[in-house]
Design a protein around this nucleic acid. Structure first.
Lengths: 341, 341
DNA sequence: ACGTTTTCCGTAAACGTTTACGAGAACACA
DNA sequence: TGTGTTCTCGTAAACGTTTACGGAAAACGT
């Protein structure tokens, strides 16, 4: 059905080698011949079969992003990733690469899907998100020597892969600074369980700032919960029932903040009046929630572009001049003051 | 680097043909030999090269979903699609197919990306969303004979492709019924411009119900806007400044509703008190907005599964017994009453 | 003991590309 | 005229699979 390079060759009465060279812009082909090949290609609307091409070249010219919905949270999507992916896609397209997003099943933490993509060589590199403190995916990829980049840091896999992360330490620290400046001293911190790395970074910043202000870190004010609304709902009362009630809470995730606010409402505690609520990664939900949640906002689309660039620079086939390799970057979050604190 | 079928054959001292047959579960291979092949495959952790396989078979065993962010709306993602994709992915995986999500650049309405996927044969079929009344993508695919399915109806491309849509007519009609029952007679309708098909369906239902109740359809109460928050914000005042002010508004899109409510707030009009607001497709944003928006909710994950099933049934390679082909289905939306109406 | 069927496996072609190699023709230069 | 260089192209191998075909050996039937 679809026309192949052989059809073109037969049609023009030349060899397939010449057709291929003409199409790929090689130098050793007559300008006139090239012209005729390009015309014929358009006429028969030929385009190269990707399977044939990648089989021969050993490269698929596409990058995979592993997207995974949180388990047990079907209604809540990941608005977070769309702008990021938009940026990623845009930059990759500029280098002639396709972005494909591989959906994982909720819960398997991608190991299975990831192996599948890697082992069947469906992509030339992968991009990981939701990095954990110790991340088996990173270990797997480095061990296998498969190129990748991560959105988020990790302690796994040596230091030789590109990664781009948000400055959660700074955000945690800034959040505390701001609250202390406004008179708070009992400040709770709620972060996701599992061992998502950003939860640790956030907590480091939180602790550092507290100490800097001479405030003792109270373990009773720190809680881990499942990273969704139910998790926030479940865990928030725990810190509120602490011996000496907190006057502020910093949530390390938007969905958890939403659940937390629901719990607070049921206790008759109003964010913005009775308690100050800050959330670390801003999403549209924070903006529309009532009261609108004060939050730290990332600039996702530029981050996507940037990570694509870093990844490209790390791939031998695309690397620019030596020394342009960017290994890791940490980007700031911008405070958006709303009504909840 | 990666082991091929030749490595296995050499290692076991048998031919590659036998190895392939053993791996693919063909009957004409000795049980003992098969055992040894499988063991060796595990040992050398072999897995088939997808390019080689699809080149030979003329099929990639993967389905592409074309995902596209709305132009000029970077912050607002598409939480809508994640549960849908989860269902789609799950069902496809059961048949051994991979789902890949192809990101389009905002604005080009996917023609370019779509052509790329189709012409380079990166997938065996594609799934389209955001169907328009007349949809060039559908025309393109039918003309080319490329298998596809759509989330949403269209008037393009004959009737022979699987499509699954929500019952926007019924939702529009039900929304009006409910409002009329509560005493409203001046009911505005705001829908997306472009010619997204569901906007027409919604309006059909709206008009039908109005007529049924003996209420004249006032063109001044119907407005089209760009399908995002800014669009809703911009267009809502237009219907509110109508000669005889509406007492209710039905928004055909969540983002537009959010923008509309912002405009209303600036006019000092409170949804739930001064005006009834209903939105047709519910998303998490509606739930968290204040006041929480009464909305019609789809069940996205089952829809994803179902559309996958319909698509599979339409592919010759996967079709079950004849007559099981499902061409089109329309699913109901469920009313979720909240505070805004 | 002999013909027939079944079981199992090797051979080789094919899928659509890219590319190393070499060869003929044209050209330049002395 | 002879030699070297440059252009341009054809040939054929290779990438990793799957599969049609045929044949050897084993099993079976009489």
């Amino acid at each position: 059905m679809a026309s192949s390079i052989h059809d073109l060759a037969r049609h023009l009465n030349i060899s397939i080698g010449t057709v291929s060279r003409a199409l790929n812009g090689r130098a050793d082909v007559n300008a006139d011949t090239r012209q005729r090949v390009l015309e014929a290609a358009r006429e028969l609307n030929y385009s190269p079969n990707q399977s044939g091409r990648s089989l021969r070249q050993g490269a698929t010219r596409s990058i995979a992003f592993m997207l995974q919905p949180h388990p047990g949270d079907q209604q809540y999507g990941e608005p977070f990733f769309i702008p990021f992916l938009t940026g990623l896609q845009a930059r990759l397209a500029e280098s002639g690469l396709d972005l494909i997003v591989v959906m994982g099943a909720p819960g398997d933490y991608q190991q299975e899907r990831l192996r599948r993509v890697v082992e069947t060589r469906r992509a030339d590199a992968v991009v990981l998100a939701w990095t954990r403190r110790e991340d088996e995916r990173i270990d797997y990829l480095t061990e296998r020597g498969f190129p990748f980049a991560t959105l988020g840091r990790s302690r796994s896999g040596g230091k030789s892969y590109p990664s781009l992360d948000l400055d959660f330490e700074k955000a945690g620290s800034d959040a505390v600074d701001r609250l202390v400046a406004r008179g708070h001293r009992r400040i709770a911190a709620i972060r996701p369980a599992l061992n998502l790395n950003f939860g640790y970074l956030f907590l480091d910043g939180y602790r550092e700032a507290l100490k800097r202000h001479g405030i003792e870190v109270d373990p009773g004010l720190i809680a881990d919960g499942f990273i969704n609304e139910a998790g926030g709902y479940q865990v928030t009362p725990r810190v509120m029932l602490s011996r000496d009630r907190p006057t502020a809470i910093i949530f390390n995730n938007d969905a958890m903040a939403l659940g937390g606010c629901k719990a607070l409402a049921e206790m008759g505690i109003r964010p913005g009046h009775d308690i100050a609520v800050t959330v670390i990664v801003d999403t549209p939900l924070c903006r529309y929630f009532s009261p609108a949640l004060t939050a730290f906002r990332p600039s996702l689309e530029p981050m996507g572009r940037r990570l694509a660039e870093m990844l490209l620079a790390s791939l031998p086939a695309f690397a620019g001049p030596e020394g342009t390799r960017i290994i890791r970057e940490v980007w700031p979050l911008e405070l958006v003051v709303r009504e909840s604190d």
